[in-house]
Design a binder for these strands. Structure first.
Lengths: 348, 348
DNA sequence: ACCGAGCACTAAAGCGCTTGAGCTAGACCA
DNA sequence: TGGTCTAGCTCAAGCGCTTTAGTGCTCGGT
């Protein structure tokens, strides 16, 4: 019936109104569950709309005051740095699951650095492109929260601890400090006294949280030969740092890597130096993925559900869009999966 | 209610018109480089606009006939399958580089399967959300091209060979057949006669191209013990298939994996069976990434520039949006990087 | 029988932008 | 001198939707 050849025209509310024999306003009321039309009319309009395959034009909606039905997600990372990584795709996948329920789109942007990210936020805001944003990789001394607040863009900081947070922003985070404490506890129990934490980028908030927690935990347990070394997360630096620390005089007996990529590279580097894992040195990867089961020995790793993380963040943003006040929600503590790369210290 | 602080109002063309002392139309002409205003007025309007930090409202633009200033990208892949993968992020990064020049946004969606992907296209079309789409993972017997054409959505098929293509669509592709021929040639030269190709999903067009090419090349060279086995790309299947083929009677001396993840898993599986790489069996990974240098021995791999691939695809879409007729562009042949996992067949 | 209330629905304005149709003043031509 | 162009603007309509302010009706109360 409403079938047309190639250049199919999108049906509008006017078409529905005509076919249903009512005014456009009535159609609007009917379709948006607003009072003002009888149930029978509402049903008829609904039927016609469905039959025509009508969907609201987001542009028109937006122009008349509704939102853009879109949220934004920026990944600030130089193109050549985008390496092997399952976290973001999984995160995004979880985000989408939730957004899809409300027919919200996700505007995704990869940029080089934080400055560019800020520019994107400004543009999105000025162009009315998004109703809110999800921000990742919060840093110490981060310009983004202030900007987002200035623009009045509802935002959820993924991975931001509440303490570090701007008051107007929501946060979804994991308790890195607690997880680090658990890992150290585990290693300590296995007899390890000399531990090196091969951390990620020093500027990231969660890197700082982990480093602080490591220091605190070491102090609490009276461990003096425990320290963190920051890196850029790359396999190259992971290997290099591993090489360096294992070559030193009192080599550590346990290594905690801030991601799986460095852990894998580190194991290879250790092997080259003649260190057996876990006999000579135990290895823990922060972030579990297929990678950890692709090398021998299988890596013990801190595992969390990235998809669920994304879902949680999206839900928080949704409730912000619905007018809720900024909140902070914590996702479950990452779980330490003990595989083959951790063991008692030699001679213990 | 939402934070109603002082939500800086976005300036509109009306504001510019008032400040510049001209009509809105004049502003429009000036800002869009249309004739109808003098150069001095144009400059003045431009200055005011910049000063006010004005950016066009995409919604309004779209309503008055311009496009949505957005292109879509759907990834059909079950959430739990999103594994270690650098390809898509790199591809997207390349796409963005090009889109950003024109201030186009990228609407990104992860869905479970092709049916859901089709639904997304329909929705985007009906909601006027995108001006065009980039489609990945073309299959044999794929419903998407026909749908996109029916909807009149300009589209670029990433990885689609022209022969298999719907006439109305553009394609950007790599010559898988040529690459496969090159790999087989290389292995043949090293003395290999028994080769197994551990392929990806059988439904994908490029899987078929590779398998066809392998058969053809084997025939041409008179190799009878050469075959393909399809998988789901996972490390698990990669390992399982490797185990199976190496356990057979006349074990192959060379394995070609359709991705890096399976190659890595395969090497581990081979090691468990006591096969040394490359002494007992050579391994080639189709798709290079950090992964290939994270295992020992380093994997020989087919390398291509995914970021450039994305750029090329985006550029083709852009020219479609500018009215160009559908075209097919081929990206450079992947290059075989010989590392440590390939070598002459034992005894040759 | 009259009034006001309530319901179902319509008319019209407005969101920010583009665009074709005027309109005006000066330049040019005869 | 009048007529025709044209450059440079302005006007107003219209894109598809929401929303406010009506407009008729019916109905209950007195």
């Amino acid at each position: 019936m409403a079938d047309k050849r190639s250049p199919a025209r999108r049906p509008t509310m006017k078409d529905i109104a005509r076919r249903a024999g009512v005014s456009e306003s009535a159609v609007s009321f009917a379709l948006n569950n607003r009072p003002g039309v009888s149930e029978v009319t509402r049903a008829r309009v609904r039927r016609v709309a469905e039959q025509l395959g009508w969907r609201p034009s987001t542009a028109a909606r937006q122009l008349s005051g509704e939102g853009a039905a879109t949220v934004g997600f920026v990944l600030a990372r130089p193109a050549h740095t985008l390496g092997v990584d399952s976290f973001f795709l999984q995160l995004v996948s979880g985000i989408q699951e939730v957004l899809a329920e409300r027919h919200l789109g996700l505007l995704f942007q990869v940029v080089e650095d934080i400055a560019a990210e800020c520019a994107v936020y400004r543009t999105w805001w000025a162009e009315h492109r998004v109703d809110g944003v999800l921000m990742v990789d919060p840093r110490t001394d981060d310009p983004r929260p202030a900007l987002l607040e200035e623009l009045g863009l509802p935002a959820v900081v993924i991975g931001g601890a509440p303490a570090e947070l701007h008051p107007g922003l929501s946060a979804v985070w994991a308790d890195d400090a607690g997880a680090m404490a658990a890992v150290v506890g585990e290693l300590h129990a296995l007899g390890h006294r000399r531990i090196v934490h091969i951390a990620g980028l020093p500027g990231l908030a969660h890197t700082q949280r982990r480093m602080r927690s490591l220091r605190a935990e070491a102090e609490r347990r009276g461990l003096t030969e425990v320290r963190s070394v920051t890196t850029d997360y790359s396999d190259a630096e992971g290997a290099a740092v591993t090489h360096r620390v294992l070559s030193g005089s009192a080599a550590p007996t346990a290594l905690i890597y801030d991601n799986d990529v460095m852990a894998v590279a580190g194991v290879a580097a250790a092997a080259e130096l003649g260190f057996a894992v876990p006999e000579d040195v135990s290895v823990v990867a922060w972030e579990d993925s297929a990678l950890c089961r692709m090398v021998k020995p299988w890596l013990s790793a801190l595992s969390r559900d990235s998809v669920a993380f994304g879902r949680t963040a999206a839900r928080e943003l949704l409730s912000r869009l619905d007018g809720a006040t900024p909140g902070t929600v914590q996702v479950p503590l990452p779980e330490l999966i003990a595989r083959q790369s951790t063991g008692p210290v030699r001679g213990a």
